[in-house]
């Protein structure tokens, strides 16, 4: 016996909500996203400094860092000639910086101020000579060095920065 249901008004009334429910359920289906990680080259903070300063650049920046003023043209010419006259530029820079350290006008923080706030001193020194903030590892190493060596002075630290390879590049 065949039942004819499609024409039943009751069934028709029930089928409409059922379709709506299916539609609603299907509209709430969860979408899945796949997240990836792009390759990123991690470089040191000083990696952009890949150009050596000319002797003139080195001297003028050094002088400004040490004396907080610009070097005069005659002084610059003489300093350039002095540097040029020595073949080993590390030796030449060492002598130039230590000569400046003997100048009464050189601007160096006091030992007391360094020891009172080593972190600020280290951050300022990095900013002054290397034009950047230290990494956390660099900061801790320098603070530990200052703390563990009572004889270390701002002058010696300045000397190290001024004659470091990074200070000679930009």
């Amino acid at each position: 016996m065949n039942m004819q249901t499609s024409g039943s008004p009751i069934l028709r009334m029930l089928s409409i909500p059922a379709i709506l429910c299916v539609m609603m359920l299907s509209s709430c289906a969860e979408e899945y996203y796949v997240y990836g990680v792009d390759d990123v080259e991690i470089t040191p903070v000083n990696s952009t400094k890949d150009k050596p300063k000319t002797h003139a650049q080195y001297i003028s920046i050094l002088y400004a860092n040490m004396f907080q003023k610009a070097i005069g043209p005659n002084q610059m010419l003489q300093a350039l000639n002095a540097i040029e006259s020595i073949g080993d530029k590390q030796v030449a820079y060492d002598m130039l910086v230590s000569k400046y350290m003997n100048d009464p006008e050189v601007k160096i923080p006091t030992v007391e101020s360094m020891r009172a706030d080593p972190e600020t001193f280290v951050r300022e020194t990095y900013k002054r000579f290397l034009v950047r903030q230290p990494t956390e590892a660099e900061l801790q190493w320098m603070i530990n060095y200052i703390d563990s060596r009572p004889a270390v002075t701002p002058e010696l630290i300045f000397f190290s920065f001024a004659t470091s390879n990074e200070h000679a590049h930009y």
Binding site: P52, D88, Y93, S160, S164, E166, A168, H169
Partner: peptide
């Protein structure tokens, strides 16, 4: 300081 710059292979012309 130089060790932290060493990967560049750049140095003062000594």
């Amino acid at each position: 300081l130089n060790q932290n710059f060493q990967q560049q292979g750049l140095e003062i012309a000594h």
